[in-house]
């Protein structure tokens, strides 16, 4: 049987390039799309790597998903859609999140349904939609209510609900991936910042009360899970947490990087986390105002990122495992080591 044509949105980005690589490796024909401005050259700061797509010789169609007319040519003859594109940071305005993350998803679904060939829709949600968990919520499961704590996550939550409604109404098998802290080669933002930062530190220190667990998932497991769900013969529906089995505490993580780096690890006495967080969130909020509103630049410090400090995040991955998915990196330590090696080999650190 001929494999369906796959559309990958956000294809020039960190996860998009990995998704395209995995699909090509699996023998699929791929149409890649991203903003036309993302395609000409690699831009590491912006997290865009179109050279990966060129090497794979896949079809690229530039489009802005917020423009319904631009979306129509993307979905021609497309059977599987891997919808990764989104505005991902904590510094944009609500209108921008809504237009890209919700409006873009709606345009894509409308066009694909009109085309009539869609057989799977795999959407990138976000592991953060549950909100900052309290101990009684752990482990976070897909059947729990969402409580997105910021505008980025609110837009992802809305987009998830839109996909559920439209796909269920039209009987399109679909899956919403809720990846946690995604790391891996080419990661620049989020998990990438964290790994690159830790890989350069010497000494490493952490307060004794930093026992909150950090959720991790390697990018190859995110895209591997996406392909697995798209190909799954059984029923797929709703959200899927995409998180490995590690459950490393922040202390474990620091200790791990100390051993990896050959650095000294210093466990310092406990600190009052909540008051420090409050001050840091205020400071980051101010910095964001100056950087974003006045200088129109992305802030290096974001209040919503600090809110995660010492949070205890444990995600159930049983729903994904029940479909038969086998993790490439069930233990983040192996994936983190390989990623650090990649950053070193490529001269990023």
């Amino acid at each position: 049987m001929t494999k369906p044509l796959c559309l990958v949105t956000g294809a020039c980005g960190f996860m998009g390039t990995h998704m395209v690589e995995v699909l090509v490796e699996a023998g699929y024909k791929v149409r890649a799309t991203d903003l036309p401005s993302a395609y000409p050259d690699d831009d590491r700061a912006a997290g865009r790597f179109p050279s990966v797509l060129r090497k794979l010789n896949v079809e690229f169609v530039g489009a802005d998903l917020t423009d319904p007319d631009a979306v129509k040519p993307l979905v021609k003859d497309v059977g599987f859609i891997f919808h990764i594109a989104g505005l991902f940071n904590y510094s944009s305005k609500w209108e921008a999140y809504e237009a890209v993350n919700v409006g873009g998803t709606r345009n894509l679904l409308d066009a694909a349904l009109a085309e009539g060939k869609l057989s799977r829709f795999i959407m990138w949600g976000a592991g953060g939609v549950y909100g900052l968990p309290t101990p009684d919520m752990l482990p976070l499961r897909e059947d729990m209510p969402t409580n997105p704590p910021n505008n980025y996550l609110k837009s992802k939550d809305l987009a998830e609900k839109l996909v559920m409604e439209v796909c269920e109404k039209n009987k399109i098998p679909y899956a919403i991936l809720r990846p946690t802290t995604v790391y891996g080669p080419r990661a620049v933002y989020g998990g990438g910042q964290l790994v690159m930062g830790l890989a350069k530190m010497n000494p490493l220190a952490a307060p004794a009360n930093f026992t909150g667990r950090v959720p991790f998932i390697h990018v190859r497991d995110v895209v591997g899970a996406a392909l697995h769900l798209a190909e799954h013969k059984g029923t797929i529906a709703g959200p899927y947490n995409v998180n490995d089995d590690s459950q490393m505490t922040q202390l474990d993580l620091m200790r791990f990087f100390a051993k990896l780096n050959g650095a000294l690890f210093i466990k310092v006495p406990p600190i009052p986390v909540e008051p420090i967080k409050k001050v840091a969130i205020k400071a980051a909020g101010l910095m964001q105002k100056v950087m974003v509103d006045m200088l129109h630049k992305k802030s290096p410090l974001e209040a919503d990122t600090i809110a995660y400090l010492n949070g205890d995040f444990v995600y159930s991955n049983e729903k994904l495992k029940a479909t038969g998915y086998q993790f490439i990196y069930p233990d983040a330590r192996h994936g983190l080591r390989d990623t650090v090696q990649w950053y070193r080999d490529e001269g990023w650190i």
């Binding site: 051993k259 086998q326 993790f327 490439i328 069930p330």
Partner: peptide
């Protein structure tokens, strides 16, 4: 890197042991 599937069991290798708790 490949997408070759491995079992979900954690791998007990040099790295895992060297960074494990007592």
């Amino acid at each position: 890197m490949t997408t070759k599937k491995k079992p979900n069991a954690p791998k007990l290798d040099y790295l895992a042991l060297a960074t494990a708790s007592n």
